[in-house]
Simulated assay, not measured.
Amino acid sequence: MADKAGGQRGRRPQGQDAQPNEPTLTRERIAATAVNMLDAKGLDGLTMRGLAEAMGSGVMSLYWHVENKEAVFDLALDTVLEYSAPTSLQDWRGDIVHVLDDWRATMLRHPWSALLLPRRVLGPNILVRLERLSTCLSAGGVAEADVNAAIWSLWNYVMGATVTRASFGPSDADRAVSQERLAELGSLYPFLGRSRLLLDDDWDGTFRRGLDFLLDGIAPKR
């Protein structure tokens, strides 16, 4: 991620030297600590003072490595979105499923990332994923003029699926009661009653099947 011109990174503020026994700070250590804090406390739970305390450091020493909390968010987000793509492009659909399955699983492990990603400038690791998707779509026969629309369709699908799964609130008992009410109102909602929609909790299978529907529309199997 690019630094702002004239930013503080790489330059210790005058008169704010590190304390003698202060542990060494690195951007990697800052990122790992920030990810742990975000996993435990969410976006509102991360503060620069709290981050510094978690690393046994002074706040001003932290500012020597990152400009502000927004820069920490960027660093943490890019860290969790790191992606190791398959070495060769053999099956364009399989590669797309791999990219999006991994992306969704990553965001479910770190729910704050799904909320943060749409608000941030895209970092190197998410750009790696988007570049891979573009390459796969091209290999699948999608015209270059249509790749952007295909990319945003896949983006919207994986983000929507992730946020819905991460924030889905009703308990199993609540869903069972709701399904019973649908059955009692069968004449109004006959299909929902038969399909038992509210009891369907195959989140992973539904994600895969929905992705197949989407990919069939973008570039049908040949």
Score class of each variant (00 low, 15 high):
1 M>L: 12
4 K>R: 06
5 A>L: 11
7 G>T: 13
8 Q>V: 15
8 Q>D: 08
11 R>N: 07
12 R>I: 15
15 G>I: 07
19 Q>D: 02
20 P>I: 08
22 E>V: 01
23 P>Y: 04
23 P>C: 05
25 L>T: 06
30 I>T: 06
32 A>R: 10
32 A>W: 00
33 T>Q: 15
35 V>G: 06
38 L>W: 03
45 G>S: 07
45 G>V: 07
48 M>N: 08
48 M>I: 10
51 L>R: 00
54 A>N: 06
55 M>C: 11
56 G>E: 09
57 S>Q: 14
58 G>Q: 14
59 V>L: 09
61 S>E: 09
61 S>L: 05
62 L>R: 10
64 W>E: 08
65 H>E: 06
77 L>T: 09
83 Y>Q: 04
84 S>L: 02
86 P>F: 01
86 P>A: 08
93 R>V: 00
93 R>F: 00
94 G>P: 06
95 D>V: 04
96 I>K: 05
97 V>F: 15
99 V>K: 04
99 V>W: 06
99 V>P: 00
100 L>K: 01
102 D>C: 06
103 W>E: 02
104 R>E: 00
105 A>P: 04
107 M>G: 01
107 M>I: 02
109 R>W: 00
109 R>D: 10
110 H>E: 11
111 P>K: 01
114 A>S: 14
114 A>P: 11
116 L>S: 12
118 P>V: 02
118 P>L: 03
118 P>E: 01
121 V>K: 06
128 V>A: 12
128 V>T: 12
128 V>Y: 03
130 L>M: 14
135 T>I: 15
138 S>E: 01
139 A>H: 04
145 A>P: 02
147 V>R: 14
152 W>K: 11
155 W>N: 13
156 N>P: 00
157 Y>V: 01
161 A>M: 13
162 T>R: 05
164 T>M: 09
165 R>C: 08
168 F>C: 02
170 P>E: 03
172 D>F: 10
175 R>Y: 13
182 L>R: 13
183 A>D: 10
184 E>P: 02
189 Y>E: 00
191 F>H: 09
191 F>Q: 09
194 R>G: 03
195 S>H: 04
198 L>N: 10
198 L>W: 04
198 L>V: 06
200 D>V: 12
201 D>F: 01
203 W>H: 10
203 W>R: 03
204 D>P: 07
205 G>A: 03
211 L>H: 01
211 L>P: 09
212 D>C: 04
214 L>I: 12
215 L>Y: 10
215 L>V: 03
218 I>G: 05
220 P>H: 07
221 K>E: 10
